[in-house]
């Protein structure tokens, strides 16, 4: 990862110095292990703060929405797919962006790792395929593949789909993975079990809206939950209101979600929130052969009409 960091800094400084971009958006080291912070570098000094490791799971496309400057942006596979989606949806122009592509080998799941230990983790060090977790009185070596975020473990688009420059050679894409395993499992339940499954899933929700706000797709000037004239959904902790929020949030991502996992990563309550969007992604793939953000030239399925669109649901 050290090579990635050095290369990112080198590219960022070059772009800032020669005026190609006004800023470079990337990550800088956080104050806690497994917590890096999105960072905006506007000069060579702040470009030296840029870094890369397996804790850069937030989606940086979230930070370019409606910006007017020329922006250099560090993008792994999923970020690049969301940048493509942003371009398609007119949230940014392609020629405003200089995409610094990151061939990605997956991000590690901080929720999972934190839950593995009873005490504080003081440092997380990576070396190749292993991760060493240490605390005040312990040190444990883990295999990175075992502690990947679930979406990364089943990711089939690790390489950026759109980029101006790469920081390293492309990585091999995974082929033998099933991103929809849990969806298939839920599909086999009856209505009652499904209802209860999701009831239990979202029961810890505190409606902080971190899932919505970390998502590059959620850029509405006023979200439906914040709308007051008319008010679409109640604001209390009433379970039906909480569920309405989750259903509608997910549905607004239909055909657009790249399964970057930012929503799940940021949830302070550790809710596996991708269970909602994954179903929509699976449907889009099965009904329209569509995965979001793979091409600048194709319109999304919910944005177009084709005579052979599936219509069995209309009676």
């Amino acid at each position: 990862m050290k090579e990635y960091t050095e290369k990112i800094r080198e590219i960022a400084k070059r772009l800032l110095n020669d005026g190609t971009v006004d800023m470079v958006i990337g990550f800088r080291k956080g104050t806690l292990p497994m917590m890096n912070q999105p960072h905006i570098a506007t000069c060579t000094d702040s470009a030296d703060e840029l870094m890369w490791d397996s804790n850069c799971g937030l989606n940086l496309a979230n930070y370019v929405t409606d910006r007017k400057e020329k922006i250099g942006i560090v993008a792994k596979g999923c970020d690049s797919r969301n940048l493509v989606t942003h371009v398609i949806e007119n949230k940014i122009k392609r020629d405003q962006l200089y995409i610094i592509g990151i061939p990605c080998s997956g991000m590690i799941d901080h929720h999972k790792i934190t839950a593995m230990f009873d005490t504080d983790i003081t440092s997380v060090k990576e070396s190749g395929e292993s991760i060493t977790i240490s605390g005040n009185d312990f040190s444990k070596k883990l295999i990175k593949q075992d502690v990947l975020c679930e979406n990364c473990a089943a990711c089939t688009h690790r390489n950026p789909v759109e980029y101006d420059e790469l920081v390293a050679d492309l990585v091999e894409e995974q082929t033998d993975v099933d991103p929809y395993e849990s969806v298939t499992e839920i599909e086999s339940m009856d209505a009652e079990e499904k209802w209860n499954y999701f009831e239990d899933l979202i029961s810890p929700c505190i409606r902080c809206y971190a899932c919505r706000n970390a998502c590059p797709l959620c850029y509405c000037p006023t979200c439906f939950v914040d709308e007051s004239t008319p008010q679409w959904v109640g604001k209390s902790q009433d379970p039906i209101d909480v569920r309405t929020f989750h259903l509608l949030r997910a549905f607004h991502c239909a055909g657009r979600c790249t399964d970057c996992g930012a929503c799940e990563r940021v949830c302070p309550m550790g809710i596996k929130i991708r269970e909602f969007t994954k179903k929509l992604n699976k449907d889009c793939l099965e009904l329209y052969g569509w995965e979001a953000g793979l091409s600048l030239d194709e319109r999304p399925p919910l944005d177009t009409f084709k005579t052979d669109d599936p219509d069995e649901f209309i009676k």
Binding site: E187, K194, N196, L247, K279, F313
Partner: peptide, 9 residues
Amino acid sequence: KNFLEHTGI
């Protein structure tokens, strides 16, 4: 329809 049924309706 699929999505609502998936979540238990």
